[in-house]
Simulated assay, not measured.
Amino acid sequence: MTRRLQIPDLGGATAVILHRPHPTVAALTRQLNAIGLQVECCWPELPVSARQADYLFLDVDTAHDDQFPWEIGRAPMPAIALVGSEAPGRIEWLMNFGADAQILKPVGTGGVYSALLIARATFDARAEMADSIESLRRRLGQRQTVVRAVTMLAARGKSEDAAYNQLRAMAMAWRVSFEEAAERIVADAAPHTQEPENGR
């Protein structure tokens, strides 16, 4: 079942605008203040405190990697691109940066509210997907560890089914999960499976 998106309450949220002094900044600030956001304007660099902001607006026409205190593509908040130039180099930079929404310049009297909502939904969906991928990687790693543990137990002359049942019994005896028991067995065996140093 698809999760229904809900419009977040933006009152009291904070936004940082990374843009040189310009009428665009004034127009954007007016809209953000009207929606209820607190605004901080920065140029030419973001302060480290910007990590705590709820939203980031950035000028794609002049932005560059060194302005951000994080790895490009890993902004810790929803980012909204202010796009004026459609030069291929600028669009390529924008795609690598990974903005969650965009507003075409010049900024008028509308468009900011919908950009905030779209940016938040896109950012949250991407974060949820990243968590799901990491969870799948962990589960895959745990399954591989279980296979290794069962193989080790079976190497002692047991059948695969018997080794599997032994692993389950060990997990119950240790009062840990099946996967944790497998990790313990593999970890305990690791020192014995390392090759001797210097031929000893």
Rank of each mutant, 00 (worst) to 15 (best):
residue 155 A to V: 03
residue 112 V to I: 14
residue 177 S to K: 07
residue 194 Q to K: 09
residue 188 D to Q: 13
residue 147 V to Q: 14
residue 108 G to N: 08
residue 112 V to L: 00
residue 175 R to L: 00
residue 67 Q to V: 13
residue 151 T to P: 05
residue 102 Q to E: 08
residue 159 S to K: 10
residue 43 W to G: 02
residue 58 L to M: 12
residue 65 D to K: 15
residue 18 L to D: 03
residue 156 R to W: 04
residue 17 I to K: 00
residue 88 P to A: 06
residue 181 A to F: 03
residue 88 P to V: 02
residue 44 P to A: 06
residue 185 I to F: 09
residue 25 V to M: 10
residue 198 N to Q: 11
residue 93 W to T: 04
residue 163 A to W: 09
residue 103 I to A: 03
residue 127 A to D: 12
residue 66 D to C: 03
residue 166 Q to G: 13
residue 36 G to V: 01
residue 17 I to T: 00
residue 32 L to N: 00
residue 94 L to P: 05
residue 12 G to H: 07
residue 157 G to P: 06
residue 127 A to K: 11
residue 168 R to P: 12
residue 30 R to V: 07
residue 34 A to R: 15
residue 33 N to G: 10
residue 87 A to D: 08
residue 147 V to D: 11
residue 5 L to H: 06
residue 148 R to D: 13
residue 138 R to P: 03
residue 197 E to T: 11
residue 132 S to A: 12
residue 16 V to S: 03
residue 75 A to K: 04
residue 26 A to W: 01
residue 119 A to E: 02
residue 19 H to F: 11
residue 90 R to H: 06
residue 64 H to C: 06
residue 104 L to I: 12
residue 54 D to S: 08
residue 144 Q to R: 15
residue 1 M to A: 11
residue 70 W to H: 00
residue 84 G to L: 03
residue 139 R to E: 11
residue 186 V to W: 01
residue 62 T to D: 14
residue 161 D to C: 02
residue 28 L to C: 00
residue 19 H to E: 08
residue 30 R to N: 11
residue 87 A to F: 13
residue 81 A to Y: 01
residue 127 A to F: 04
residue 129 M to W: 05
residue 111 G to T: 00
residue 135 S to T: 05
residue 103 I to Y: 02
residue 187 A to Y: 05
residue 11 G to Q: 08
residue 98 G to K: 03
residue 131 D to H: 15
residue 147 V to E: 11
residue 177 S to D: 12
residue 101 A to H: 07
residue 71 E to I: 04
residue 52 Q to R: 15
residue 73 G to V: 08
residue 171 A to C: 14
residue 91 I to C: 00
residue 182 A to I: 07
residue 199 G to M: 01
residue 149 A to H: 02
residue 80 I to M: 09
residue 191 P to D: 13
residue 161 D to G: 02
residue 92 E to Y: 10
residue 128 E to W: 08
residue 105 K to M: 15
residue 189 A to H: 13
residue 10 L to H: 03
residue 113 Y to E: 10
residue 10 L to W: 00
residue 162 A to Q: 07
residue 136 L to Q: 14
residue 8 P to R: 12
residue 117 L to R: 14
residue 132 S to C: 09
residue 171 A to W: 01
residue 24 T to V: 02
residue 190 A to L: 08
residue 65 D to S: 15
residue 91 I to H: 04
residue 101 A to V: 05
residue 52 Q to C: 15
residue 41 C to Y: 04
residue 16 V to N: 12
residue 153 L to C: 01
residue 119 A to P: 10
residue 45 E to W: 07
residue 87 A to I: 09
residue 192 H to Q: 10
residue 41 C to T: 09
residue 125 A to N: 13
residue 45 E to N: 14
residue 46 L to N: 09
residue 108 G to E: 03
residue 174 W to I: 03
residue 180 E to L: 13
residue 37 L to G: 08
residue 79 A to V: 07
residue 83 V to P: 01
residue 168 R to V: 07
